[in-house]
């Protein structure tokens, strides 16, 4: 599904990613943990195609294709989805219009007919229910005046609507209280399929109590320094990132 080799990226003159290697197979959930500034969100941004980052070395293969050569919208059409850490408010752009455009764009790309108004509405209701998102929000502008929790749920709601192959969740847990966290995690779990992969970026282990990852990676200073099973997350929670940092230096 996804193969990242020796990825280096920088923003302006600052090198952030310094050789990331990561392989995600279809159906797997990979968690990436790491302290602030370790490059987790940069990795998500580079994968989604944010233009302010410059890739200076390495490559990314997505379903056998060179991901870095694709425009952000092409990546989306090919099934890459980024759940934003800070979802953007779009005053004047209605949720309804936004989702219909996005969904039909993707359907057209796959050679499918646009959804009928009725089918679209039905799908919207079902997906909103999945993350307990207030259906009233559908008549509002995208994220405009949404609470922090509503914005995060809205990201997972869109994930459910757009049915990506590769979902990258950038700190979806931050700003969610424990009830919302459970709801969102339940939603994500319901969306797990053996042909859909998740990269879950998080600062804390808590989310991983609910979304059980196949593999946990620890990112420090622009590199993945350790990978392991879900118990690695628990170790990190107990011992803190300094433990890894020290070990890395020692190695």
């Amino acid at each position: 599904m996804l193969q990242i080799n020796n990825l280096h990226a920088r923003i302006e003159e600052q090198n952030i990613l310094k050789g990331v290697d990561l392989t995600v197979s279809a159906g797997e959930v990979h968690a990436i943990m790491g302290p602030n500034g370790s490059g987790k969100s940069t990795l998500a941004s580079v994968l989604a195609g944010r233009e302010e980052f410059e890739v200076t070395d390495g490559n990314v293969l997505y379903q056998g294709q060179d991901l870095l050569e694709m425009e952000p919208d092409e990546r989306a059409l090919e099934g890459v989805f980024l759940a934003f850490q800070y979802p953007v408010e779009l005053p004047g752009v209605s949720m309804n219009n936004f989702l219909r455009q996005a969904l039909n764009q993707q359907r057209e790309y796959r050679g499918e007919e646009p959804l009928s108004a009725g089918a679209f509405l039905k799908r919207m209701k079902a997906c909103a229910a999945l993350v307990d998102l207030d259906p009233q929000l559908m008549s509002r502008a995208v994220n405009d005046g949404f609470s922090g929790g509503e914005k995060k749920r809205n990201e997972i709601f869109q994930l459910a609507m757009l049915e990506p192959r590769l979902a990258i969740m950038d700190e979806t847990d931050s700003g969610l209280d424990i009830d919302a966290l459970r709801t969102v995690a339940d939603g994500v779990n319901a969306l797990r399929r053996n042909d859909r992969s998740f990269v879950v970026i998080t600062h804390y282990q808590r989310l991983l109590d609910y979304i059980i990852p196949d593999t946990v990676h620890v990112m420090v200073d622009g590199r993945i320094v350790r990978s392991g099973g879900k118990e690695l997350a628990l170790d990190l929670e107990k011992k803190g990132y300094d433990w890894i940092r020290e070990e890395t230096v020692a190695v």
Binding site: A48, G49, R50, E51, E71, P72, D73, R75, A76, L77, F81, L82, F84, P87, V88, L90, P91, G92, V93, N97, F98, Q101, A102, Q105, Q106, Y109, A141, Q158, L162
Partner: peptide, 22 residues
């Protein structure tokens, strides 16, 4: 905002049109 729309599959042109229309 443009990036947000593009990350959902809209072309640059569509994203710009949507934001200007709004």
């Amino acid at each position: 905002a443009l990036f947000y729309l593009r990350s959902r599959g809209m072309t640059k042109q569509q994203a710009q049109g949507m934001l200007l229309h709004a």
